[in-house]
């Protein structure tokens, strides 16, 4: 699949922001005053900014409001609703906490649950697609949720929680890579089933339908960069999990914590790039590609 920068930025930043808002929501003693304002502002900037970025890949962004209409069937529509609900509830919670120093735990927990629901709906947009076997798996929502929780814990300064969650995220990510490599073969789709000609013999793409490229190949048969996938996995894991855990294990200092956050964000961006670039769409079989 084509790793569109707007989608990578959107899922990475909104995942982090919603994770931070989750921890602020369930915190029985959330930071108040100016400190609280800064924490909530970072959360809203990441989550809201990420969601704004998601409209950049639309062909007709001026009609984006219509995406709220089909929540009964569409995960994308459900994501729009949960995101709106999560941000609305958390804005109310943040206003009470920051302006009045008053935390209504029920409101905080509701906002936190809606933040996780938003991350879940985002992940289900990908996990629902049977056409992309690497994504069509329960590990996709699990990965998005653990990543969001770990990143949020890191951003909110929960050192020990962040270390545990980062380790869990790393394990889920490693397993997703390993298992994901086999899912296309397990899906049962191949050139024989795509063309129905497998009963005659071995099918090979002889001539494509056009001399140049097309929308389908640009969007769904992205093979550029896959050859460096193994190296990028090592880089992603190192930046996303290993380095932040090492930095957090050092005696606490704001500089180390800041570096851990930057490293984590960079690692998530690399991992998310791989999430798209490595994902094979079954339409590739019609072109003799993966």
């Amino acid at each position: 699949m084509h790793p569109a920068p707007s989608i990578i930025a959107f899922t990475t930043l909104s995942g982090l922001g919603l994770g931070l808002l989750f921890w602020l929501g369930i915190d029985p003693t959330p930071p108040t005053g100016w400190v609280g304002a800064v924490f909530f502002a970072i959360g809203f900037a990441l989550a809201g900014g990420g969601l704004m970025l998601s409209t950049f890949h639309l062909g007709r962004p001026e009609r984006a409001i219509r995406a709220f209409s089909q929540w009964r069937t569409s995960w994308l529509s459900r994501e729009a609703w949960t995101a709106l609900a999560a941000l609305s509830v958390m804005v109310l919670h943040a206003a009470l906490v920051v302006l009045f120093g008053f935390s209504l735990s029920l409101l905080g927990w509701l906002g936190a649950a809606l933040c996780l629901a938003t991350v879940f709906t985002t992940s289900m947009i990908y996990a629902q697609l049977r056409t992309v076997p690497r994504w069509h798996h329960w590990s996709t929502p699990l990965l998005f949720l653990t990543l969001s929780l770990a990143g949020g814990a890191l951003l909110s300064g929960r050192v020990s929680v962040a270390m545990v969650l980062l380790a869990i995220t790393g394990a889920v990510q490693l397993w997703s890579w390993r298992d994901g490599d086999e899912r296309l073969a397990r899906s049962g789709s191949d050139m024989a089933s795509a063309t129905g000609l497998g009963g005659i013999g071995t099918v090979r793409a002889f001539e494509p339908p056009h001399t140049g490229t097309n929308y389908l190949m640009r969007e769904m048969v992205h093979v550029v960069g896959r050859k460096h996938a193994q190296k990028l996995r090592v880089i992603a894991m190192g930046l996303m999990v290993v380095l932040p855990v090492v930095l957090l294990a050092l005696p606490f200092g704001h500089a180390w914590a800041g570096l851990a956050v930057l490293s984590h964000v960079a690692g998530v961006i690399v991992a998310r790039w791989l999430f798209f670039a490595e994902a094979e769409h079954v339409v590739g079989f019609y072109y003799g590609k993966r």
């Binding site: 699949m1 890949h57 639309l58 062909g59 007709r60 962004p61 009609r63 984006a64 219509r66 995406a67 994308l76 947009i125 629902q128 697609l129 049977r130 056409t131 992309v132 789709s189 929308y215 389908l216 969007e219 769904m220 769409h281 079954v282 339409v283 019609y286």
Partner: peptide
């Protein structure tokens, strides 16, 4: 009514 998100094209196995 189409916003051009492209998700339907992703969902189609046949291109």
């Amino acid at each position: 009514a189409c916003i051009g998100c492209g998700l339907c094209a992703w969902a189609c196995p046949y291109g």
